[in-house]
Nucleic acid binder design. Structure first.
Length: 242
DNA sequence: CCAGACGTTGTT
DNA sequence: GTCTGG
DNA sequence: CCAGACGTTGTT
DNA sequence: GTCTGG
């Protein structure tokens, strides 16, 4: 549901927006979750600074590096409604919640029963930088002593905007309204409190537009380009839409 | 998730 | 069609 | 009890 | 570590 995101904010913009210290950081116009790159996140136990965690949560009980590499491709997202019951997520959702700054994300919209698809870029119109609800984990490889910090993006039911794009599975990432984003980190939240945050964002404050297929063009080496998220018109879409 | 491959042959 | 790599 | 999974997502 | 399936 949310495997491709953007965080193009400048280091100074992020620090100012969250009032948190940020040491090192590279803005990405496009980030593929399956690359498991580090992203700046803010955790509940160190709320005044950013930490760079890798996308794809590795549960603390994972035994080997091989197992870690196998599970992290399946924990990029976490179904919020089930998080408290899943062995991979239950400890993290209770004790290790985080904010994942973001400036947009990417999804594909299918037509004609899976024959053609078009990429979209989705933004929040009332917040240029917004927070995805995340959970994180710390895992140590007992063989090498190496420690990995990783995170997962929570998902919830789709709102009207996302339902249209995601025409079958009706899911979307949990986006936290800015006014309550810090509350997400409160360690005293109950299960019910946590689940109350995991609601679809107001569709009236979300916007989506088609983008060029450069985003998945393998002949394009460097995808960290501003134009990747720029609006791109497909004239034939008007017909497919009908 | 999407794009691209999709096979074999000797190894400790 | 289905699996793998990114 | 032991062994094996532990996950998400477009498939229709 | 903990749960599920056999």
């Amino acid at each position: 549901m949310c495997y491709h995101k953007q965080d193009k904010a400048l280091m100074s913009e992020l620090a100012e927006r969250y009032k948190a210290a940020l040491r090192e950081y590279i803005p990405y116009y496009y980030e593929n979750g399956f690359d498991h790159k580090p992203s700046p996140v803010i955790t509940g136990d160190r709320p005044q600074e950013f930490q760079l965690f890798n996308w794809g949560l590795v549960p603390w009980w994972t035994k080997t590096r091989t197992e870690a590499d196998q599970i992290r491709v399946k924990t990029l997202n976490c179904i919020s409604e089930e998080a408290f019951d899943k062995p991979s997520f239950r400890d993290a959702i209770r004790e290790r919640r985080c904010l994942i700054p973001c400036t947009g994300y990417y999804e594909w919209r299918w037509f004609q029963g899976g024959k053609v698809k078009y990429p979209y870029f989705i933004q929040v119109t009332d917040e240029p930088i917004f927070s995805l609800a995340g959970i994180w984990s710390e895992w140590t490889d007992r063989a090498t002593g190496e420690t990995r910090h990783t995170y997962s993006v929570l998902t919830t039911r789709a709102n009207a905007v996302m339902e249209k794009i995601h025409n079958s599975k009706k899911r979307m990432p949990v986006i936290l309204p800015r006014s309550i984003e810090r509350d997400w980190l409160n360690p005293a939240l109950t299960r019910e409190d946590v689940l109350a945050f995991c609601e679809p964002y107001d569709a009236q404050h979300m916007q989506a537009h088609t983008i060029s297929k450069m985003i998945t063009d393998r002949s394009v080496g460097d995808k960290n380009l501003e134009q990747i998220a720029k609006p791109f018109d497909y004239p034939e879409l008007a017909l497919l839409d009908a």
